[in-house]
């Protein structure tokens, strides 16, 4: 009988601890499938952040090093400069990449570091209990914007991917979502292209993945998927934001 579905080799035989409906598990699986298909399992070094995905090293069967909050791009830079043959990816949330780690991210991108950032945008700080993130939508309620995010008091959702597109060292940036089977397939394609960009030594690549956080959004999983497609994509439209790979 032909096997059509199995656990990717790049995922350990460990059950995910993520909440029901969380997007991390899907993103993990997509990345692992790409690593398998591109035959990169023995070349990849992954960098998970503090946060819900801090235990990513219990799931990915590749070399991994935990980063301090927001410093993923700097840690990735150090690894890649010390050992350029590695395929290095950071796995970062919105607070990590677009708040505390903004400087590290922008400057690594500007240097054109040959690294790939997987940027999980779920519009909240997940592990700490659903506080406002830089990507929280206007009027979205979080534990620190209990009356809804107000532009006057809390500013606007930060479009870090669009900002990074202006930086010359970035080569490929795409925003996808894990909110439907079709979008999951697009995410996989984007992750593959981002890794290929790094293999081809072209520059900095980033895939922003809109990802559901049903628990902190106080929604059922299906409702969370729908909220991504109806609300989040208005502020964060899906698609290729920058591609100068020439491919």
């Amino acid at each position: 009988m032909k096997q059509v579905y199995r656990r990717p080799h790049s995922l350990k035989k460990a059950p995910f601890h993520y909440c029901p409906g969380c997007g991390h598990s899907i993103a993990h699986r997509v990345i692992a499938e790409v690593i398998d298909e591109m035959n990169l399992q023995d070349k990849v070094i992954g960098i998970p952040p503090p946060g819900c995905s801090v235990f990513a090293y219990h799931y990915f069967d590749v070399d991994m090093v935990e980063s301090a909050h927001g410093r993923g791009a700097a840690v990735a830079t150090g690894i890649k400069r010390a050992f350029p043959q590695a395929i290095v990816f950071t796995y970062q949330g919105d607070g990590d990449l677009a708040a505390i780690g903004t400087a590290e991210t922008i400057h690594a991108a500007n240097r054109g570091e040959r690294i790939t950032a997987i940027f999980i945008n779920n519009a909240v700080y997940g592990m700490t209990g659903g506080q406002m993130a830089p990507t929280t939508l206007l009027s979205q309620k979080t534990t620190t914007t209990p009356y809804g995010r107000s532009a006057q008091l809390e500013g606007y959702p930060l479009k870090i991917s669009e900002m990074l597109a202006l930086v010359k060292g970035t080569v490929y940036i795409e925003r996808t979502a894990v909110s439907s089977p079709a979008n999951i397939m697009k995410t996989k394609k984007a992750v593959r292209k981002a890794f290929q960009t790094q293999i081809d030594d072209l520059g900095f690549s980033l895939v922003e993945i809109l990802s559901p956080c049903p628990v902190n959004w106080k929604m059922a999983p299906l409702e969370a998927w729908q909220w991504i497609e109806k609300e989040m994509t208005k502020e964060f439209p899906l698609g290729v934001i920058k591609d100068v790979t020439g491919k």
Binding site: I45, V65, S67, A68, R71, A74, V75, A76, T77, G78, I79, K80, R81, A82, F83, A86, A103, E104, I106, H107, R111
Partner: peptide, 23 residues
């Protein structure tokens, strides 16, 4: 490799990365 980093924070985290990679 030499990098003039964007901050001391970044510099020390690059150090962390390079040390992880064994140099």
């Amino acid at each position: 490799s030499f990098i003039q980093a964007e901050s001391e924070l970044s510099a020390i985290n690059m150090v962390y990365g390079a040390s992880v990679a064994g140099v």
